[in-house]
Simulated assay, not measured.
Amino acid sequence: MIQDIQPSRFDLSYLQLDPAYEDTVLVFEGKKLAVKGLDPLRLPTYRDIHGPVQYLFSIDETHYFLALEKQEQLSYQDIHRLRHQQPKKEQFAAVTAYHLYVWYAKHRYCGVCGKPMVPAHSGRALRCPSCHNRIYPTIMPAIIVGVIHNDSILVTRYAHRTYKGHALIAGFCEIGETPEDTIRREVMEEVGLHVKNIRYYKSQPWGFDLNLLLGFFCELDGNPTITLEQEELAKARFISQDELNDKPDDLSLTNDMMMFFKAHGAHVLDCLDSNCH
């Protein structure tokens, strides 16, 4: 998945660090990222930009910074082009930096008193010098769930998105909900089904949409007749291992879960109980 950059090591420790000329700088304009090349993915360095920067994190010995001013002299690409770029550690760095870029951009002013926010010097936070309000990066938890019925898995297709491949039931955790509660609610809302035997699978940071994705499998409980919520989904159906023709993409939790089902089929829940993954 996108975060699997081993043997490289991601270190999010917050440092008060000045950039060197060869340090990497992430430069965004909305959903566009400045790049020096796409094959392989090459990002600007501090030598290529002007103006102030904010330290973000490191991967191995490379320090990554965020540019705080527009850089008209650079070439930009839509951030979603990163879904298939290599090297993997640069892809992950860019998407994680985008998550932080959006947070910084949306919290320039205090939500309590309206005064400008400044970086806190003790950890990844912003603080208000006037009223002392302190905020931390926004992370939105969401579930992805593979619903199993006999030897089949429930796959969906989104109604209003450009991506038209197979997806799984997904949705945001609401206030007061556990992820398991979210699963029960989202499955009922989107396809009108009850589920049981919920099992945790894996998680994934997904900076494209500021999410922390939590993957689960569960079992259909009762009638398999689908009632489609057409505002969210164009299609939903149960398909077998043999019908699932998706290929590994080494990127998303959804794909990883479908590949896990493709490998284990009706034994998915038993495999999770025995920790065979």
Rank of each mutant, 00 (worst) to 15 (best):
H160K: 15
D181L: 02
P248G: 07
V27I: 13
L100A: 06
S152N: 14
Y14G: 03
H264E: 14
D48F: 06
M257C: 12
T138K: 14
A93K: 03
C276E: 09
G265I: 05
S274M: 11
A125Y: 01
Y98V: 01
Y136A: 09
I144Y: 11
G111F: 00
M140L: 13
N133L: 07
D39Q: 12
I175M: 10
I183H: 09
Q6M: 05
K89W: 15
L244Q: 09
K31Y: 09
P137Y: 09
E186T: 12
G265W: 00
C113V: 02
L168R: 00
V155M: 09
P116M: 06
G111C: 02
E177I: 09
L210W: 13
Q241K: 12
C131A: 07
F10G: 06
V118R: 14
I79C: 00
A167M: 09
R42Q: 13
N255W: 04
P119Y: 01
E232K: 15
E90L: 15
D270E: 14
S240G: 05
V191R: 11
Y201F: 15
F28P: 00
E180Q: 13
S13G: 00
L74F: 03
Q85T: 14
L68S: 08
D151E: 14
F92C: 04
G37P: 04
H166T: 06
E90Q: 11
Y46I: 03
R134L: 09
R83V: 08
V155D: 10
P205T: 08
K235P: 01
P19M: 02
H84L: 04
H121M: 08
F172M: 13
L244D: 08
I143D: 01
Q85G: 03
R83F: 03
Y101K: 06
K115I: 02
S252F: 04
D181T: 03
H99Q: 14
S203K: 10
Y101V: 01
D48Y: 06
P137E: 07
K164H: 11
N133S: 13
P119G: 00
V195G: 05
L56R: 03
D18I: 02
V102Q: 15
E61C: 07
A93E: 00
I198G: 08
L233F: 04
K164L: 12
S13H: 03
Y163S: 10
Y200D: 05
I135M: 04
Y158L: 12
H149A: 10
I79G: 00
G111T: 03
C271G: 14
G51H: 05
P129M: 00
A266M: 08
